[in-house]
Design a protein around this nucleic acid. Structure first.
Length: 119
DNA sequence: CTTTTGACTGGTG
DNA sequence: CCACCAGCCAAAA
């Protein structure tokens, strides 16, 4: 179970706290290989039917809102981030390093946890 | 079945 | 700074 890579990506993204952001590469690295970063982006593309997945909190390695075109309105992603206290300027997150949330640091190495799992 | 294409990243030139 | 390439995973044609 849970063998789907996408599902693991969604689980990680769900743990990103409001007001924080992570990157495709950081998530991919946490799940095994940084090279799978594109797949993480692809998973986000497929997360449309997943209202519980805050895809707007995932940006590229320099804090650029590369996926903003997939949020209906072109500025929807930016609006969502601003509403959470993340300042955005020119499609880029201001003070990206301060908002960056690394799953490899904040989540247990084995993920998702096999016990006390609530889905 | 094979090929192409992505919301990516790091390295090389 | 820009162009190109390889690596990884899944879906669509």
């Amino acid at each position: 179970m849970g063998s789907d890579y996408f599902e693991r990506v969604y689980e990680v993204v769900r743990r990103i706290p409001a007001g924080r952001v992570s990157t495709y590469g950081a998530i991919a690295e946490f799940l095994g290989s940084v090279s799978a970063a594109r797949t993480v982006g692809y998973a986000m593309n497929a997360s449309h039917s997943r209202p519980d997945v805050p895809a707007h909190r995932v940006v590229n390695r320099i804090g650029l809102l590369t996926g903003k075109h997939h949020f209906g309105g072109t500025q929807m992603m930016e609006e969502l981030l601003r509403s959470e206290g993340v300042e955005v300027e020119d499609d880029r997150i201001v003070g990206f390093a301060q908002h960056f949330w690394d799953p490899s640091v904040h989540l247990p190495r084995e993920f998702p946890p096999t016990e006390g799992r609530s889905l």
